[in-house]
């Protein structure tokens, strides 16, 4: 029995190594350069067409906005799954925290002080990346992740469960509705003013802010659920 399992182990290792070697060999020797019509189309005149100087933002907010819609749906579905398919829902009595024990559990003084200093700057750079996402590297996804990092550092300093996750979930659903409605009205149905130079910018900033807040609330809900409900 042990002999066969050992043999299977070696076979699996050999399978992974041979697969990697075959793919690497094919990639290095037989990969061909394809034309890039999508890149040529997207980088030709994206500033005049979409109002974004960052062509990645132009793609995921204007050219391929369907991707963003379904990504937002996917994140919301996963958040709903994390909240609803959880053992802690039906067995809430097992999840009472000892508050005095939980308060400042094992946090070093250095971490607490330094995070307290860094905290507003993390918030600031998150908001900066969200708002300037269409003219510089950044965007809603990255800025939202940084804002969620700010909340996670808050957990390091102040590990208490005083956040209303239910309200945050409702906020996320409303944000998802706005994320769906804004491109549908503005991009698909073309409800735009005649001169679109300013309205394109407004659309970019608004969509980046909505996506950033949605990613922020989604990641925070996932993090706090995992820390306080799935933690044992």
């Amino acid at each position: 029995m042990a002999q066969t399992s050992r043999l299977f182990h070696i076979i699996r290792i050999a399978f992974a190594v041979i697969g990697a070697l075959v793919v690497l060999f094919l990639f290095l020797n037989h990969s061909e350069q394809l034309d890039t019509p999508l890149m040529d189309y997207f980088t030709a005149d994206f500033f005049a067409q979409t109002g974004a100087q960052n062509s990645v933002a132009a793609i995921y907010l204007n050219y391929r906005v369907f991707d963003t819609l379904f990504e937002a749906l996917m994140l919301m579905v996963s958040v709903m799954e994390v909240i609803n398919v959880s053992w802690a829902n039906k067995h809430a009595e097992k999840y009472q925290f000892e508050k005095d024990d939980f308060n400042r559990k094992g946090n070093s003084e250095i971490v607490v002080r330094m995070v307290g200093i860094i905290y507003p700057f993390v918030l600031l750079i998150g908001l900066y990346i969200i708002v300037n996402g269409h003219v510089s590297p950044g965007g809603g996804f990255q800025g939202g992740a940084i804002l969620a990092t700010a909340l996670i550092t808050r957990y390091l300093v102040y590990p208490n469960f005083d956040l209303d996750l239910h309200a945050l979930e409702i906020v996320e659903k409303i944000l998802f509705l706005s994320i769906v409605m804004t491109p549908v009205l503005y991009v698909f149905m073309q409800i735009q003013p005649a001169d679109t130079t300013i309205s394109h910018q407004i659309y970019m900033v608004a969509m980046n802010s909505l996506i950033g807040l949605k990613v922020f609330s989604g990641l925070s809900i996932i993090f706090y659920r995992f820390v306080f409900y799935e933690g044992r």
Partner: peptide, 14 residues
């Protein structure tokens, strides 16, 4: 090429 970056932004969150 901005296309793979734009695709991967969504893929990372997913």
């Amino acid at each position: 090429d901005p296309v793979p970056s734009a695709l991967m932004i969504t893929a990372i969150v997913i």
